[in-house]
Amino acid sequence: MSRYITIISTIIESGSDTGLIALAAAGLQDISEWSIDLEDCDKVIRIVSAKDISNEFCEKLALFGIKASVMQIFDDRYHLM
Rank of each mutant, 00 (worst) to 15 (best):
W34A: 02
C58F: 05
M71H: 11
S16K: 13
I47V: 13
N55T: 15
M71Y: 10
A50K: 13
K60F: 06
S14K: 14
K67M: 12
I8G: 00
W34S: 03
S9H: 10
S35R: 13
I21P: 00
C58N: 11
R77C: 13
E56A: 15
Q72W: 07
L38E: 06
D30E: 15
S54M: 07
I21C: 00
I53R: 00
D75I: 02
L23T: 07
V44M: 15
W34E: 01
D42F: 15
C41K: 13
A22E: 08
G19F: 06
D75A: 04
A68F: 02
I12T: 15
W34L: 04
T10P: 03
R77H: 14
Y4W: 08
M81T: 07
E13W: 09
M81F: 10
D17I: 09
I45M: 04
D42W: 15
G15W: 06
I7M: 10
D76L: 05
S9C: 05
V48M: 05
A50E: 14
K43Q: 12
Q72S: 11
D75F: 13
L80C: 05
A26F: 09
S49Y: 08
E13L: 15
E33W: 08
S16D: 08
I31S: 01
C58I: 14
D17K: 03
D40T: 01
E39D: 10
R77E: 14
L38Q: 12
R46I: 15
R46N: 05
I53F: 02
A24W: 04
D52W: 07
N55C: 08
Y4D: 01
R46K: 15
L28Y: 02
I5V: 14
V44A: 12
L80V: 12
Q72G: 00
N55D: 10
S32T: 14
M71A: 15
D30V: 03
W34R: 05
L61V: 08
S14R: 11
G65D: 02
L23W: 05
K67T: 11
H79V: 09
I36E: 00
D37P: 01
E33T: 12
R77L: 11
F74N: 03
W34P: 04
V70M: 06
G15M: 06
D75K: 04
L61H: 04
T18E: 13
V48H: 08
I31R: 06
K43I: 01
T18P: 03
A68L: 00
D42I: 05
K51N: 09
Q29F: 11
L38I: 09
R77W: 05
Q72A: 13
E13G: 04
I36H: 01
W34K: 03
I5D: 04
D40L: 02
D17W: 03
D30Q: 12
V70W: 13
Y4E: 00
L80T: 12
Q29S: 06
D40A: 09
I66W: 05
G27F: 03
I5Q: 10
I31F: 07
L38H: 09
A50L: 13
G65R: 03
M71W: 10
N55M: 07
S16V: 08
R3M: 10
L63A: 08
A62Q: 14
A62K: 12
L80Y: 03
L23E: 12
A26C: 06
V70C: 07
